[in-house]
Lab assay of single mutants.
Amino acid sequence: VDNKFNKEQQNAFYEILHLPNLNEEQRNAFIQSLKDDPSQSANLLAEAKKLNDAQA
């Protein structure tokens, strides 16, 4: 993981990586967004979790 991520951002990265119901395309999009703007990690994680739950 890129060293410019802080602890919260790293946690978001790993959580998104391991959400079971996202397809690869969705997962990659969230990860790319996280890399583009790490400050949005909490929002991105919340969105990813919502999508993950919706696809459960």
Rank of each mutant, 00 (worst) to 15 (best):
D36V: 12
E8V: 01
E24Q: 10
K7S: 04
L19M: 08
K35N: 10
F13Y: 11
E15A: 15
P38F: 03
P20D: 09
P20R: 13
I31G: 03
K4D: 14
A29T: 12
D37K: 09
P20K: 07
E15T: 15
K4W: 14
P20N: 09
E24H: 10
N6V: 03
I31N: 02
A29K: 12
A48M: 01
P20F: 14
A12I: 10
Q55Y: 14
A48E: 00
D36L: 15
A46V: 12
S33H: 13
N52V: 03
L22E: 00
N52K: 02
E24I: 09
S33Q: 09
A54G: 11
N6L: 04
Q55R: 04
D37L: 08
D37C: 07
Y14Q: 08
N52D: 09
A12E: 02
L44H: 07
N11T: 09
L19F: 04
E47Q: 13
E24A: 07
D53Q: 11
I16D: 00
A56D: 07
L17H: 06
N43A: 07
A48T: 01
S41V: 11
E8Y: 02
D2R: 02
N6T: 06
P20W: 07
N52L: 01
K50D: 06
A29Y: 15
N6E: 15
Q26T: 06
K49M: 12
V1D: 04
D2S: 04
N52F: 02
Y14R: 11
I31S: 03
L22W: 00
K4L: 08
A29N: 07
L34E: 00
L22Q: 00
D37N: 09
L45H: 02
K49G: 04
A56K: 08
V1G: 12
Q10R: 06
Q10D: 05
S41C: 12
Q32C: 15
F30L: 05
H18G: 09
A56H: 10
I31P: 00
Q55K: 05
K7F: 03
N43Y: 15
L34F: 13
K49V: 09
L22P: 00
K35I: 05
P20G: 10
A12M: 03
A42L: 14
D53K: 15
E8T: 02
L19S: 02
L19C: 05
A42C: 14
A54N: 11
Q10T: 04
A12K: 02
Q26C: 07
A46E: 08
K4H: 14
P20Y: 14
E24D: 10
L44T: 08
R27K: 05
N43K: 14
N21K: 13
K7M: 05
I16V: 06
E8N: 03
F30R: 00
Q26M: 06
I16P: 00
I16S: 00
L45G: 01
D53P: 01
Y14M: 12
N11A: 14
Q9T: 07
N23F: 13
N23Q: 11
N21A: 12
N6K: 01
I16R: 00
N43M: 14
N28G: 06
K7Y: 06
Q9Y: 09
K49A: 07
A56C: 14
Q55D: 05
S41E: 01
L44Y: 11
I31M: 13
E25Y: 14
P20V: 04
N52Y: 02
D2Y: 01
L34N: 01
F5N: 07
K49N: 09
A46P: 01
Q55I: 13
N11W: 15
P38K: 05
E25H: 12
L45F: 06
R27S: 02
K49H: 03
S41M: 09
N11G: 09
L51P: 00
A29P: 02
N28L: 14
F13N: 02
I16K: 00
S39G: 11
P38N: 02
N21V: 03
S33C: 10
Q55C: 12
N28E: 10
F13G: 02
D36G: 11
L45Q: 04
A46S: 10
N23L: 13
R27E: 00
E25A: 13
E15Q: 15
S33P: 02
A29H: 05
E25V: 08
S33A: 08
F5P: 12
Q26W: 07
N21F: 11
Q55T: 07
R27N: 01
N52G: 03
L17C: 12
I31E: 02
L51S: 05
A12H: 07
D37S: 05
N21Y: 12
S33W: 13
P38L: 04
E47G: 12
E8F: 04
Q9A: 07
L51N: 04
E25R: 13
P38V: 05
A29C: 13
E8C: 02
Q9W: 13
S41F: 15
I16F: 04
N6S: 03
L44G: 01
K49F: 14
Q9S: 04
